[in-house]
Amino acid sequence: MKLMNKAALITGAGAGIGRAISMLFAKEGAKIGVIDSIPEAGLQTVQLIENINGIAKFIQADVSNTRDVEKAVNSIAAEYGSLDILVNNAGVCFVGPIAELTEEQWDVTIDVNLKGTFLCSKYAAPHLKKNGVGVIINMSSGLGLYGGACWSAYCASKGGIIALTKALAVEFAPDNIRVNCILPGAVATDMLLRNTTMQAKIAGLSGPEEINELMKKIIPLRRIATPEDMAFGALYLASDESSYVTGIELSIDGGYLAT
């Protein structure tokens, strides 16, 4: 097992990619701090982990709220006696033309996706330092590198995460905390379904299935990713196999960014 006895705090762990990472890390021996803003979602992930004899504890937190984050990080570290891995996965997305994007939607996107990554890293770092080895994994996106029409706030937040990843990688390097980010492409999650439904509406297409078919045509590996595809990348970055890797963007996108 690659993460035996490691304590991992995973935000947005109640669904999609966050849940897949939680499950895989638990299978690899890690004790999971399941963080989500929605209790039913987070508790369901805990149940799924316990079903495979894993160890997990749920803490409700809004990652954009300082007090929530401080409390969540400290109680998970106290529960497991240490904190070794932080996965900043919680994210939101509003799809729409900039003329229709409200200031509140912009603020929420930047607060959750970008400030949430900052806050969790800030409060987790003192714990991550303690054992002389720590890992932070941030979820950016291919959309942090290239523009997508109608994705402005999301693009801005994800581009910021790439830069923040590099800044933290350099700052935390003396403490042997490695900081890397993952750039998922299209991943089959509830969030993707919500986004493509909106996209289809904007583009005047029949529905999300039509967008999916179009995406498959432009992704070299010809399929939409599964959340597990992302989890295996996160496992690599969390494990000792990547002990000399810091500050990178790992694209898991079926070859899309190569085109």
């Binding site: 033309p97 291919g142 959309l143 590198l145 290239y146 523009g147 997508g148 029409a149 109608c150 994705w151 996209q199 904007i202 583009a203 297409l205 967008i211 179009l214 432009i218 899309y256 960014l257 085109t259």
Partner: peptide, 16 residues
């Protein structure tokens, strides 16, 4: 013309 950093995330015939 903006090609490089504009992978079509919505169908290519749609740019607002």
């Amino acid at each position: 013309g903006g090609f490089l950093y504009s992978h079509p995330t919505v169908p290519t015939n749609y740019y607002p």
